[in-house]
Design a protein around this nucleic acid. Structure first.
Lengths: 189, 189
DNA sequence: TCTAGATCGTTTGGTACCTAACTAAAACGA
DNA sequence: TCGTTTTAGTTAGGTACCAAACGATCTAGA
């Protein structure tokens, strides 16, 4: 993902900013209202749904933060990109897989996948095989090096997932996943 | 967002896959358990926190889905990237701003911002001014064209934010934002 | 005043990502 | 049986993104 809008919600990272935070402390809350009124005034008769704005904007911010730190602290030292890691993980869980389905599982465009599989192939972590019955198609499998790597990295990654969800109860986490799934479906994955 | 791992959670997009979905229907649920046991077996004595995995993986998936569709259906027709839109939005809400803070508000690396501001400048949507007192620094402002554009686009973007959160109550949306803010903080924005 | 260090924004180099165009293979139809 | 259409994966072109190196400017300390 790159980074981006979803309208800023900067209370989350220190600076003043829009403050959709629903913070409980008074000054925070006042600033929230001030900003909202400010925007509202600027928009005239158009009405803005700040609650939806806050929900959506935080999705992007969280995703970017989680990804950046994972790349820096876990993936970089094994020389794996976020996308590369995903591919290894999917192949590890589901085994040999054709390119088209692999792209779907990894949520990547097929053209993107081609390049990333090539990179992993050069690194000796995966292998391509043409399908005999239909020579247009290609399957991808983990090599033993790839297997060893993902078995080493994934537990660390999962510990990181636990770390970034600190402060959320198991119920919170399930609720979070559920709400996000609805959004993903609405956006039409 | 880019796209990526956070371990797949593909029930969300049709294909078989990991199915952390907490689906209620029976076959779905069985598949979930089977997959979990499968991975667990593969990992031997390492234990995996599937709830955290599902929470985190869905963040990325949702962010990517939301972004892709926004770029395609809203931003493309006004020739704006997600990042470019964010910059205009921040400047619109907060007014003239120095580069460093703008990068922070937009959640972008400063080097990234430089290029994107240059693009927007070429499009005539923003302007740069050197700060008199400290000639290292630069402020960025909206031009009248930039102002007109963001006033036109933002209401549409907000309607889109409402659309992708369809099915979530206002309380759900606030809860979603709250949970995500915790994650962002944990990941150290 | 002079200089060493800190602090700006920009540049650079590299990856990742998407879309659209392309190539090759299979499937279909007359 | 031969074209046409469909369906694979790859390639090409462009943007976005980050991190690290760079150059210019300010600031301290002597």
């Amino acid at each position: 993902m790159g980074t981006t809008p979803s309208s800023p919600d900067s209370t989350d990272h220190g600076t003043p900013a829009l403050a959709m935070s629903a913070g409980l402390d008074q000054p925070e809350h006042q600033r929230l209202l001030a900003a909202e009124e400010d925007i509202q005034a600027r928009l005239g008769d158009h009405s803005i749904d700040f609650v939806s704005l806050a929900a959506v904007s935080n999705i992007y911010r969280a995703a970017a933060a989680v990804r950046r730190r994972a790349e820096r602290e876990i993936l970089a030292e094994v020389n794996l990109s976020w996308g590369g890691f995903t591919i290894l993980w999917v192949l590890w869980v589901w085994g040999e897989m054709e390119t088209a389905r692999l792209a779907g599982e990894c949520d990547l465009a097929k053209g993107t996948l081609t390049g990333m599989v090539s990179t992993l192939e050069k690194q000796g972590l995966v292998e391509r095989q043409r399908v005999e019955e239909d020579r247009r198609r290609v399957t991808v499998t983990l090599t033993s090096d790839g297997l060893a790597l993902i078995e080493d990295v994934f537990p660390r990654f999962n510990r990181y997932e636990v770390a970034v969800t600190t402060g959320l109860s198991p119920q919170d986490k399930q609720e979070l996943a559920r709400l996000l799934r609805t959004v993903t479906t609405n956006a039409g994955s």
